[in-house]
Amino acid sequence: MRTKEDKIFDTVNIVFMVILCVFMLYPFLNQIAISLNDATDSVKGGIYLWPREFTWNNYEHVFEKAAIWQAILTSVLRTVIGAGVGLLCTAMVAYAIAQPKFIFKKSVTIIFIMTMYFNGGLIPTFLLMRDLHLIGSFWVYILPTLISAFNLIIMRSFIEGLPNSIFESARIDGAGDFRIFFKIVLPLSLPVLATVALFVAVYQWNQWFDVFLYNSSNPNLTTLQYELMKILQNSSTTSSGDMASAFANSASGDSNMVTPKSIQATMTIVASVPIIMVYPFLQKYFVKGMTLGAVK
């Protein structure tokens, strides 16, 4: 059945896909190799996929700092609390606006959807946070992004798709809306809850700008992404910095020294490993949410 043309096409296609995978993965694998390679040796270049002089030294150096543990704690807390609280609030509003009889169904929906089109902008938002005394507080990470209109629509579409008879029979049995929401809708909505929880968790984990904006002078509210961002901004575009410090290292003969290059690589891996570990197992929920949101 397969013609010669088919075979050529398939071969070219598979080769292309392999190249694509290398293109996607290489930068990441390269950073892993550099983070596991001796810092002074890395400066010589030529580290690609495998460390030349293997060492845990860079990781030891990074995890020695107290700031990193604070950053990990804040990153984990904002991810867990942000996803948990955000999920509950989004689901509640989604349930209400999915009820055909709700008198404010339309107005509440529009009020939320409008927020997809505009925002007050950086400075007015910053001043609002100042007036609400949220600057210098952990809640500035959670409160401003409590509900996203996009996630709300995904959830509403899902709840609207649940069979109406379930609600009816629960109502006949005398269950109120809160009871129906917690006992029936939430358990039935697990797939969409997982999707939205993941969207929020990834957003929270990856966020650095609000730390920069509101808590840059607050070392106990720093996050991993923000610490990496500071390293990135400090390293100049040339590698002369690396060279200088590397020469200094070899002069002093201290093999435990690190360079900006190896620290940046190590922090990059530390800041992204949790996501890399989790996403392959949860991708089907992501894809479902993505297509669900787009169909709307």
Partner: peptide
Amino acid sequence: ISYLPHFLSWVVAAAL
């Protein structure tokens, strides 16, 4: 594999 970079933050992506 092709989704992977989407889940990384821009800070990580910029570092890469």
